[in-house]
Protein backbone atom coordinates (compact mmCIF):
# COMPACT_ATOMS: atom_id res chain seq x y z
CA UNK A 1 0.00 0.00 0.00
CA UNK A 2 1.15 3.48 -0.82
CA UNK A 3 1.88 5.72 2.10
CA UNK A 4 -0.73 8.42 2.53
CA UNK A 5 0.38 11.99 2.42
CA UNK A 6 -0.03 14.00 5.64
CA UNK A 7 -2.54 16.37 4.03
CA UNK A 8 -4.83 13.45 3.29
CA UNK A 9 -4.58 12.13 6.80
CA UNK A 10 -5.46 15.53 8.21
CA UNK A 11 -8.34 16.04 5.79
CA UNK A 12 -9.80 12.64 6.45
CA UNK A 13 -9.76 13.46 10.14
CA UNK A 14 -11.57 16.73 9.39
CA UNK A 15 -14.25 14.95 7.40
CA UNK A 16 -14.65 12.35 10.12
CA UNK A 17 -15.05 15.12 12.67
CA UNK A 18 -17.75 16.82 10.59
CA UNK A 19 -19.59 13.53 10.31
CA UNK A 20 -19.33 12.96 14.03
CA UNK A 21 -20.81 16.37 14.81
CA UNK A 22 -24.14 15.35 13.29
CA UNK A 23 -24.09 12.02 15.10
CA UNK A 24 -23.14 13.72 18.35
CA UNK A 25 -26.10 16.06 18.14
CA UNK A 26 -28.54 13.26 17.47
CA UNK A 27 -27.17 11.37 20.44
CA UNK A 28 -27.25 14.47 22.59
CA UNK A 29 -30.87 15.21 21.71
CA UNK A 30 -31.91 11.61 22.24
CA UNK A 31 -30.26 11.38 25.63
CA UNK A 32 -31.60 14.76 26.67
CA UNK A 33 -35.15 13.93 25.60
CA UNK A 34 -35.16 10.57 27.31
CA UNK A 35 -33.69 11.94 30.52
CA UNK A 36 -35.97 14.95 30.70
CA UNK A 37 -39.04 13.19 29.31
CA UNK A 38 -39.12 10.16 31.58
CA UNK A 39 -39.66 11.77 35.02
CA UNK A 40 -43.09 13.18 34.20
CA UNK A 41 -44.18 9.92 32.61
CA UNK A 42 -43.01 8.06 35.70
CA UNK A 43 -44.88 10.45 37.94
CA UNK A 44 -48.11 10.48 35.93
CA UNK A 45 -47.94 6.83 34.93
CA UNK A 46 -47.37 5.63 31.36
CA UNK A 47 -50.95 4.50 30.81
CA UNK A 48 -52.44 7.63 32.22
CA UNK A 49 -50.01 9.78 30.22
CA UNK A 50 -50.50 8.10 26.86
CA UNK A 51 -54.17 7.16 27.13
CA UNK A 52 -55.58 9.81 29.45
CA UNK A 53 -58.15 11.82 27.58
CA UNK A 54 -57.83 15.03 29.57
CA UNK A 55 -55.00 17.49 29.35
CA UNK A 56 -55.43 20.05 32.11
CA UNK A 57 -51.89 20.90 33.02
CA UNK A 58 -52.68 24.17 34.74
CA UNK A 59 -55.59 23.08 36.87
CA UNK A 60 -55.09 24.58 40.32
CA UNK A 61 -55.98 21.57 42.40
CA UNK A 62 -56.16 18.53 40.13
CA UNK A 63 -53.94 18.91 37.09
CA UNK A 64 -54.29 16.11 34.51
CA UNK A 65 -51.72 15.05 31.99
CA UNK A 66 -53.37 12.77 29.45
CA UNK A 67 -52.00 13.38 25.95
CA UNK A 68 -54.27 11.05 24.00
CA UNK A 69 -56.12 14.05 22.50
CA UNK A 70 -52.80 15.45 21.30
CA UNK A 71 -51.60 12.14 19.91
CA UNK A 72 -54.85 11.50 18.07
CA UNK A 73 -54.97 15.05 16.74
CA UNK A 74 -51.46 14.69 15.36
CA UNK A 75 -52.35 11.35 13.77
CA UNK A 76 -55.68 12.50 12.34
CA UNK A 77 -54.23 15.80 11.17
CA UNK A 78 -51.34 14.09 9.42
CA UNK A 79 -53.58 11.41 7.92
CA UNK A 80 -55.98 14.06 6.67
CA UNK A 81 -53.15 16.05 5.10
CA UNK A 82 -51.92 12.88 3.39
CA UNK A 83 -55.38 11.96 2.13
CA UNK A 84 -55.84 15.43 0.61
CA UNK A 85 -52.26 16.29 -0.33
CA UNK A 86 -50.90 13.05 -1.76
CA UNK A 87 -53.44 12.56 -4.57
CA UNK A 88 -53.16 16.19 -5.63
CA UNK A 89 -49.38 16.03 -5.39
CA UNK A 90 -49.20 12.73 -7.23
CA UNK A 91 -51.33 13.89 -10.13
CA UNK A 92 -49.38 17.13 -10.34
CA UNK A 93 -46.20 15.07 -10.47
CA UNK A 94 -47.59 12.85 -13.24
CA UNK A 95 -48.61 15.92 -15.16
CA UNK A 96 -45.25 17.62 -14.73
CA UNK A 97 -43.19 14.53 -15.46
CA UNK A 98 -45.15 13.20 -18.40
CA UNK A 99 -47.75 15.43 -19.90
CA UNK A 100 -47.14 19.11 -19.26
CA UNK A 101 -46.13 21.16 -22.31
CA UNK A 102 -42.80 22.87 -21.69
CA UNK A 103 -44.22 26.40 -21.18
CA UNK A 104 -46.73 25.19 -18.59
CA UNK A 105 -44.12 23.15 -16.74
CA UNK A 106 -41.88 26.21 -16.75
CA UNK A 107 -44.50 28.04 -14.71
CA UNK A 108 -45.76 25.23 -12.48
CA UNK A 109 -42.39 23.82 -11.41
CA UNK A 110 -40.93 27.08 -10.02
CA UNK A 111 -44.28 27.76 -8.35
CA UNK A 112 -44.06 24.41 -6.57
CA UNK A 113 -40.49 25.15 -5.51
CA UNK A 114 -41.58 28.52 -4.19
CA UNK A 115 -44.30 26.79 -2.17
CA UNK A 116 -41.56 24.76 -0.50
CA UNK A 117 -39.65 27.90 0.38
CA UNK A 118 -42.49 29.80 2.06
CA UNK A 119 -41.84 29.94 5.82
CA UNK A 120 -44.40 28.07 7.86
CA UNK A 121 -45.35 31.17 9.81
CA UNK A 122 -46.58 32.66 6.53
CA UNK A 123 -48.73 29.59 5.92
CA UNK A 124 -50.12 30.13 9.39
CA UNK A 125 -50.77 33.80 8.75
CA UNK A 126 -52.63 33.19 5.51
CA UNK A 127 -54.48 30.31 7.14
CA UNK A 128 -55.51 32.50 10.03
CA UNK A 129 -56.65 35.47 8.00
CA UNK A 130 -58.16 33.74 4.97
CA UNK A 131 -58.82 30.08 5.62
CA UNK A 132 -60.16 30.21 9.16
CA UNK A 133 -62.86 32.86 8.46
CA UNK A 134 -63.79 30.97 5.31
CA UNK A 135 -64.20 27.72 7.26
CA UNK A 136 -66.27 29.53 9.84
CA UNK A 137 -68.62 31.03 7.23
CA UNK A 138 -68.89 27.96 5.04
CA UNK A 139 -69.66 25.51 7.80
CA UNK A 140 -71.52 28.00 10.01
CA UNK A 141 -69.29 27.46 13.02
CA UNK A 142 -68.82 29.65 16.04
CA UNK A 143 -65.09 29.65 15.25
CA UNK A 144 -63.16 28.49 12.21
CA UNK A 145 -60.04 27.41 14.11
CA UNK A 146 -60.27 23.65 13.78
CA UNK A 147 -58.75 20.34 12.84
CA UNK A 148 -60.22 20.87 9.38
CA UNK A 149 -58.38 24.15 8.85
CA UNK A 150 -55.17 22.56 10.12
CA UNK A 151 -55.53 19.66 7.72
CA UNK A 152 -55.88 22.01 4.77
CA UNK A 153 -52.83 24.01 5.76
CA UNK A 154 -50.78 20.84 6.29
CA UNK A 155 -51.98 19.40 2.98
CA UNK A 156 -50.69 22.45 1.14
CA UNK A 157 -47.44 22.36 3.07
CA UNK A 158 -46.63 18.77 2.12
CA UNK A 159 -47.43 19.33 -1.56
CA UNK A 160 -43.96 20.53 -2.66
CA UNK A 161 -42.05 17.56 -1.31
CA UNK A 162 -44.67 15.08 -2.52
CA UNK A 163 -44.63 16.64 -5.98
CA UNK A 164 -40.90 16.99 -6.46
CA UNK A 165 -39.95 13.58 -5.05
CA UNK A 166 -42.64 11.73 -7.03
CA UNK A 167 -41.86 13.71 -10.16
CA UNK A 168 -38.22 12.68 -9.98
CA UNK A 169 -39.24 9.08 -9.44
CA UNK A 170 -41.61 9.18 -12.41
CA UNK A 171 -38.98 10.76 -14.63
CA UNK A 172 -36.58 7.97 -13.79
CA UNK A 173 -38.95 5.33 -15.20
CA UNK A 174 -37.30 3.97 -18.36
CA UNK A 175 -39.00 5.18 -21.52
CA UNK A 176 -39.03 1.60 -22.80
CA UNK A 177 -41.72 0.62 -20.31
CA UNK A 178 -43.99 3.38 -21.48
CA UNK A 179 -43.36 2.63 -25.15
CA UNK A 180 -44.19 -1.01 -24.59
CA UNK A 181 -47.47 -0.08 -22.95
CA UNK A 182 -48.44 2.39 -25.65
CA UNK A 183 -47.54 -0.13 -28.34
CA UNK A 184 -50.03 -2.53 -26.75
CA UNK A 185 -52.78 -0.01 -27.34
CA UNK A 186 -52.92 1.53 -23.87
CA UNK A 187 -53.70 5.22 -23.69
CA UNK A 188 -51.19 7.64 -22.22
CA UNK A 189 -53.19 7.95 -19.00
CA UNK A 190 -53.41 4.16 -18.62
CA UNK A 191 -49.69 3.94 -19.26
CA UNK A 192 -48.81 6.49 -16.59
CA UNK A 193 -51.11 5.01 -13.98
CA UNK A 194 -50.57 1.31 -14.64
CA UNK A 195 -46.93 1.19 -15.73
CA UNK A 196 -45.07 4.37 -14.79
CA UNK A 197 -46.53 4.84 -11.32
CA UNK A 198 -46.01 1.21 -10.21
CA UNK A 199 -42.46 1.34 -11.59
CA UNK A 200 -41.87 4.49 -9.53
CA UNK A 201 -43.63 3.19 -6.45
CA UNK A 202 -40.68 3.24 -4.06
CA UNK A 203 -40.02 6.87 -4.96
CA UNK A 204 -43.66 7.73 -4.52
CA UNK A 205 -43.77 5.92 -1.19
CA UNK A 206 -40.73 7.94 -0.13
CA UNK A 207 -42.60 11.10 -1.08
CA UNK A 208 -45.52 10.07 1.12
CA UNK A 209 -43.31 9.27 4.09
CA UNK A 210 -41.50 12.60 3.72
CA UNK A 211 -44.90 14.29 3.63
CA UNK A 212 -45.93 12.53 6.82
CA UNK A 213 -42.69 13.66 8.44
CA UNK A 214 -43.26 17.25 7.47
CA UNK A 215 -46.88 17.21 8.62
CA UNK A 216 -46.35 15.54 11.96
CA UNK A 217 -43.44 17.81 12.87
CA UNK A 218 -45.07 21.08 11.86
CA UNK A 219 -45.92 23.46 14.70
CA UNK A 220 -45.95 27.11 13.76
CA UNK A 221 -48.48 27.09 10.92
CA UNK A 222 -51.07 24.95 12.69
CA UNK A 223 -50.57 26.79 15.96
CA UNK A 224 -52.29 29.70 14.21
CA UNK A 225 -55.26 27.82 12.77
CA UNK A 226 -55.98 24.90 15.13
CA UNK A 227 -57.58 26.79 17.99
CA UNK A 228 -55.37 24.89 20.44
CA UNK A 229 -57.95 23.62 22.92
CA UNK A 230 -56.90 20.14 23.98
CA UNK A 231 -60.14 18.49 22.91
CA UNK A 232 -60.42 14.97 21.67
CA UNK A 233 -60.14 15.55 17.93
CA UNK A 234 -63.20 16.25 15.85
CA UNK A 235 -63.11 17.77 12.41
CA UNK A 236 -64.66 21.13 13.24
CA UNK A 237 -63.50 21.48 16.83
CA UNK A 238 -60.60 23.42 18.20
CA UNK A 239 -57.74 20.94 18.61
CA UNK A 240 -54.19 20.75 19.91
CA UNK A 241 -51.35 18.81 18.25
CA UNK A 242 -48.32 17.27 19.98
CA UNK A 243 -46.14 19.99 18.51
CA UNK A 244 -48.40 22.89 19.37
CA UNK A 245 -49.00 21.40 22.80
CA UNK A 246 -45.34 21.99 23.57
CA UNK A 247 -45.12 25.36 21.84
CA UNK A 248 -48.09 26.89 23.63
CA UNK A 249 -47.21 26.06 27.20
CA UNK A 250 -43.45 26.10 27.23
CA UNK A 251 -43.07 29.81 27.74
CA UNK A 252 -45.14 29.94 30.89
CA UNK A 253 -44.52 26.54 32.44
CA UNK A 254 -42.44 27.04 35.56
CA UNK A 255 -39.01 25.45 35.48
CA UNK A 256 -38.99 22.24 37.46
CA UNK A 257 -42.78 21.93 37.55
CA UNK A 258 -44.57 18.76 36.55
CA UNK A 259 -46.20 20.74 33.74
CA UNK A 260 -42.85 21.60 32.21
CA UNK A 261 -41.57 18.06 32.58
CA UNK A 262 -44.72 16.76 30.92
CA UNK A 263 -43.98 18.99 27.93
CA UNK A 264 -40.60 17.28 27.61
CA UNK A 265 -42.43 13.97 27.71
CA UNK A 266 -44.61 15.11 24.80
CA UNK A 267 -41.38 15.95 22.99
CA UNK A 268 -40.16 12.42 23.65
CA UNK A 269 -43.36 10.92 22.23
CA UNK A 270 -43.08 13.11 19.13
CA UNK A 271 -39.46 12.06 18.78
CA UNK A 272 -40.47 8.40 18.89
CA UNK A 273 -43.03 9.02 16.13
CA UNK A 274 -40.30 10.52 13.96
CA UNK A 275 -37.94 7.63 14.67
CA UNK A 276 -40.67 5.20 13.65
CA UNK A 277 -41.20 7.15 10.46
CA UNK A 278 -37.49 7.13 9.63
CA UNK A 279 -37.38 3.40 10.14
CA UNK A 280 -40.34 3.09 7.78
CA UNK A 281 -38.57 5.27 5.21
CA UNK A 282 -35.47 3.09 5.46
CA UNK A 283 -37.64 0.04 4.88
CA UNK A 284 -39.33 1.58 1.85
CA UNK A 285 -36.00 2.58 0.32
CA UNK A 286 -34.44 -0.81 0.97
CA UNK A 287 -37.37 -2.46 -0.78
CA UNK A 288 -36.78 -0.13 -3.73
CA UNK A 289 -33.18 -1.31 -3.97
CA UNK A 290 -34.14 -4.98 -3.83
CA UNK A 291 -36.39 -4.62 -6.81
Amino acid sequence: MRRRRPVETVMSAVFLLCGLVAVAFVLLITVYLVLSGLPAIRQVGLREFLFGTTWASTHATQPQFGILPLILTSIYGTAGAIVLGVPVGFFTAVYLAKAAPAPVAAVVRPAVQLLAGIPSVVYGLVGMTVLVPWVQRTFRLSAGDSLFASIIVLAVMILPSVISVSENALRAVPKEFEEASLALGATRLETYLRVSAPAARSGIATAVVLGVGRAIGEAMAILMVAGNAANMPSLFESVRFLTTGIAIELNYAAVGSLQRMALYSIGLVLFLFILLLNALLGLVLREGVDR
Binding site: E179, A183, G185
Partner: peptide, 26 residues
Protein backbone atom coordinates in the same frame (compact mmCIF):
# COMPACT_ATOMS: atom_id res chain seq x y z
CA UNK B 1 -54.63 0.67 -34.32
CA UNK B 2 -51.85 -0.26 -31.92
CA UNK B 3 -53.92 -3.19 -30.71
CA UNK B 4 -54.01 -4.45 -34.30
CA UNK B 5 -50.37 -3.71 -35.02
CA UNK B 6 -48.10 -4.92 -32.24
CA UNK B 7 -44.48 -4.05 -31.69
CA UNK B 8 -41.44 -5.80 -30.27
CA UNK B 9 -38.52 -3.57 -29.43
CA UNK B 10 -34.77 -3.90 -29.79
CA UNK B 11 -34.19 -4.00 -26.08
CA UNK B 12 -36.40 -6.46 -24.24
CA UNK B 13 -38.60 -4.27 -22.08
CA UNK B 14 -40.79 -6.37 -19.81
CA UNK B 15 -42.64 -4.33 -17.20
CA UNK B 16 -41.29 -4.62 -13.66
CA UNK B 17 -44.13 -6.93 -12.67
CA UNK B 18 -44.79 -10.64 -12.67
CA UNK B 19 -44.59 -12.71 -15.85
CA UNK B 20 -48.32 -13.25 -15.70
CA UNK B 21 -49.11 -9.56 -15.28
CA UNK B 22 -46.84 -8.68 -18.17
CA UNK B 23 -48.78 -10.87 -20.57
CA UNK B 24 -52.15 -9.97 -19.07
CA UNK B 25 -51.41 -6.25 -19.28
CA UNK B 26 -52.68 -5.82 -22.84
Amino acid sequence: LRKQIGMVFQKANPFPMSIYDNVAYG
